[in-house]
Design a protein around this nucleic acid. Structure first.
Lengths: 343, 343
DNA sequence: TTGAAAGCGATACCAC
DNA sequence: GTGGTATCGCTTTCAA
């Protein structure tokens, strides 16, 4: 193993000088710098992470806590992980992956054993037992999502309330007067994962404002569940012409089932999907979406963590404004045949 | 911060004794053990990971290198990550996530700076530049996938050749005589990711054996690409009655497009999907699959890494036998109307 | 602008 | 069965 002393010897300087060349924490003569940098390259020196952590109480590692549920939207999680990983690396940090199922104890463990400098946690539930733990910990933490009581933690998320409104008002502007929501799986609501409820608030509030009739159902991810969900929605409001799908996992099943029912998109029914933009073109119809900005969320989460690590305390809940992109799955409402209204 | 000395003082023993209680590397009297364990609990002691790594040259961290491409099968990656994470934790190890785009240098960095004890790498390409790097490193490495020259590295993967055969022979047994393969995206073939070619070998070899006619096309993940791909396949062989889809990302698009063409599954066309079993029920039709055993692969990869860390050298390429599960998307070939054969 | 040396918090060897 | 202590490789204070 190549140590800092090896480098120092090769360059004919003291170990501390090598350390300062690397950290840039004091001025170094150009000549010394060149000498040291060359030795580093020549020897292929990489500082020992453990030794560094021990001496500096900085690991340069961020811990990311992710959900591993099957009923979960995999794409969102993956894109988010990607974004966090890339941003972290851009700031010379590495990523430690923690799975949610380990619960609060894992956070404790990671923080107390100095495995990471800061924690980023996805998929926060309303009354999440990990939140008080995070607060008790001495490390900076950033939440993706908004718990009932953020108690000083930094949060970042899509403004799901605004997103819900946006979906309804877009459809309302196109003349739709009966709209339904295919929501996340029942389990998501049961856990009180806040984005589900926040979206629903916006959805319903906007419905009142726009004077449209709305209904909604959670929806599990099996095809049968999707089919049953649509059955119920159409039954409760046969005049439905607009559908909002806030459940990435069932998107293609919803589209397939609408096809099976002979409902053409967007001629018979308009569909707005809440999902990452990267999914918009993978279906039979190019989808009008309200984007889940996975990339931005990841980047911001990392940058907020680093801000806090740098001592800048920002007790902030940052909600990102939704962006709706019109594509091929929404259109002006199609006046229905006379007969359908009076049967 | 609670240190080992704090615990030692609280228990009235030497720090080394605490260390030995924790590691179990020498016998301890029941009384001392109880005393120490109590102090540990009471103080909430967690050993400092960096200090431990420095002293023992073990980090208890595994590095996992994953691909982040959009054209990639997200579900497979996620399930695999989950399995690796869980197995690692079960063996008291943590997981450091490395993204593939950082290339060979990242592996070098992680190994040389002692960030992890061993490396697990997914999505290995035939002539992967990271493989020689991995060989040069002093750390154990396990590959998911099989490069052209494993040069002593431990590899584990589904036996994709056998999987390809299995798909064909299942369909052949049902009487299908014209079968097509919707393959991974062209990019996967271009990169020489070996599972694609291995599957194709098995697919074509078995076709010869079973006396069936086969054709195949790679397929990108946009709906348009899927549609074009099916166009070509049906054009090159209008009598097609069996379809094998070795591309999880386009599965639902394929099914949707078959629907659009008026081909019923399995009445008009049988479909075998190569994907994790967890995806079998999410579609309009319950899918006959050859499972990608993400869970097993992850578990085995971790256990092999730990074996090598324990000094047991197993220069082994382990291929897992495919398992085909019959569900609702394959059926006995449907004799086509006379007219279709002669038009 | 540079060097010497005292820790950081564990592990594991050597004694007893 | 237990304790003392050198050691791991780096950072950072103090001194020059």
């Amino acid at each position: 193993m190549v140590t800092i002393t090896d480098v120092a010897n090769a360059a004919g300087v003291a170990p501390s000088t090598v350390s300062y060349v690397i950290s840039g924490k004091r001025s170094i003569s150009p000549k010394t710098r060149r000498l040291v940098e060359e030795s580093i390259r020549k020897l292929g020196y990489h500082p020992h992470a453990g030794a560094r952590a021990l001496a500096s109480s900085r690991t340069n590692v961020l811990a990311l806590v992710i959900p591993l549920r099957a009923d979960q939207n995999v794409t969102v999680v993956m894109e988010f992980v990607a974004s966090v990983a890339l941003t972290a690396r851009a700031h010379r940090h590495d990523l430690l992956l923690i799975t949610q199922d380990e619960g609060p104890a894992a956070l404790q463990r990671v923080a107390s054993s100095a495995l990471a400098d800061a924690l980023i946690m996805m998929d926060v539930e309303a009354d999440d037992p990990r939140v008080p733990m995070l607060v008790a910990l001495d490390r900076p933490a950033v939440l993706i999502g908004v718990p009932t009581a953020p108690t000083g933690l930094t949060c970042v998320d899509l403004d799901f309330t605004a997103a819900g409104s946006e979906c309804v008002s877009h459809l309302a502007k196109l003349g739709h007067r009966a709209i339904a929501l295919v929501g996340p799986s029942p389990a998501v609501y049961q856990r009180g994962t806040s984005y589900a409820t926040r979206f629903l608030w916006g959805f319903e509030a906007s419905a009142a404002d726009c004077g449209v009739r709305v209904s909604s159902r959670p929806c599990a991810h099996s095809y049968d569940a999707v089919s049953a969900c649509l059955d119920e929605l159409f039954e409760s409001d046969p005049a439905l012409t607009g559908l909002v799908v806030h459940n990435e996992a069932v998107l293609s099943a919803v589209l397939a089932d609408l096809g099976r029912r002979g409902r053409r998109i967007p001629a018979d029914i308009s569909v707005v999907a809440v999902c990452p933009d990267s999914m918009a073109e993978n279906h039979l119809v190019s989808l009008t979406t309200v984007a889940i900005p996975t990339g931005d969320l990841g980047t911001i989460a990392v940058e907020m963590s680093l801000e806090r690590l740098a001592g800048r305390v920002l007790t902030e809940t940052r909600l990102i404004a939704p962006k709706l992109t019109v594509r091929g799955s929404t259109a002006l409402v199609n006046p229905r045949p006379f007969s359908e209204y009076f049967r």
